[in-house]
């Protein structure tokens, strides 16, 4: 296997506050292969956006990376000096934010913003940069791009603006796009188009995507692999089909069970009792244990790290082969029997 585009190892993000240190991201590790789409799901506050923000080096102080490593194409980037990190942003990692209405500077024409981005990272002449900008807008599906390039952001609709934002994120041809809830603020009818556009453009350019969302539907349709986050940690990570159809972590099971399907006729949706712990009060052991139906003693004291189980990795003691629980054995063997490896 070739070098991953992005390799995150034991990432820890802390926010010192007056009431103590918040650990927003705790011991998170994952890889993204070239051209791969990794979905990151979880509830609000699970640390998914924070992970993306930490990777691109835009954590708002006092938040900071307190541990771990971030590698981009074999180069460590979390320790780069600010000026070098700035050159990585846009050029090698692009980012798309949630709200297209506020992502664009209202006082500049979209062309000015595109040309500025291109010229920051390449030595293209203004005319070349403009030509490339028009090309980007066309690729992003904006009709009459040659004319629209001189429009201001407020002259575009929300969906069109997100197309402009995607064009901007791709302007300097990065190898990785971090898309932080790119469709959450959009009308349901155009969400699919925007996701499709993002995926197509990235595939054409060979860029990998880290797709942060809480929409399992988007993940199921778009991602190659998916990481499920809970209370700042990765609960389960694996190929999207395995995680969606055969979730192993009790939290993922709850998450999948809470999605309504067309086949259900009036039955109640599965609900996980309780709510995600506050970041100041993460319980010992497994962060999910107070809400877990399968909890046993070990969960309360010892924290599970993601351990391989089939094609996935699951941070749950149930997945530990050394564990003696009979029901676990049954589940683990079942998962292994079904997996292709």
């Amino acid at each position: 296997m070739s070098t991953p585009v992005l390799s995150v190892r034991n990432l820890r993000v802390e926010f010192p506050t007056r009431r103590g240190t918040l650990v927003a991201v705790d011991d998170v590790s994952f890889d993204i292969a070239p051209g791969e789409v990794l979905g990151v799901v979880g509830e609000s506050g699970a640390g998914k956006s924070m992970t993306g923000t930490a990777v691109i080096g835009l954590l708002e102080p006092p938040g900071h990376i307190a541990g771990g490593q971030v590698w981009l194409q074999g180069e460590r980037i979390d320790t780069l000096p600010p000026e070098k990190m700035r050159r990585v942003r846009g050029k090698r990692i692009g980012m798309v934010f949630q709200d297209p209405l506020t992502s664009l500077n209202p006082l500049y024409r979209v062309g000015e913003q595109l040309i500025e981005t291109i010229r920051t990272h390449t030595d293209a002449s203004p005319a070349e940069a403009r030509k490339r900008s028009i090309g980007l807008l066309e690729a992003a599906g904006i009709q009459g791009a040659a004319r629209r390039i001189d429009s201001y952001p407020h002259e575009f609709s929300g969906g069109m603006r997100q197309r402009v934002v995607i064009a901007l994120a791709l302007a300097a041809e990065p190898d990785l796009i971090i898309a932080d809830e790119p469709t959450t603020a959009l009308d349901v009818s155009i969400q699919a188009q925007i996701i499709q556009l993002l995926k197509t453009l990235c595939r054409e350019r060979g860029a990998a995507i880290m797709l942060i969302t809480h929409d399992m539907g988007v993940i199921a349709e778009t991602a190659d692999r998916v990481a499920v986050m809970y209370a700042g940690r990765i609960a389960e990570i694996g190929p999207v089909r395995d995680v969606v159809q055969r979730p192993q972590h009790p939290y993922t099971k709850g998450l999948m069970g809470s999605i309504p399907t067309l086949e259900m006729d009036g039955g109640r949706l599965l609900q996980i009792p309780g709510s995600m712990p506050r970041l100041t009060a993460i319980p010992n052991g497994c962060a999910f244990h107070p809400r877990c139906d399968f909890v046993f003693d070990r969960c309360r004291t010892e924290r599970p790290n993601p351990m391989p189980s089939g094609a996935s990795a699951v941070a749950c003691w149930l997945a530990d082969p050394k564990n003696g629980s009979p029901r676990v054995d049954r589940e683990a063997t079942a998962a292994q029997a079904k997996s292709p490896t």
Binding site: R87, R89, F97, T102, N105, A171
Partner: peptide
């Protein structure tokens, strides 16, 4: 503002 964050994410000086 978001557009400042986005401008930084694009690597502007």
């Amino acid at each position: 503002a978001d557009y400042i964050k986005f401008a930084r994410a694009r690597g502007l000086t």
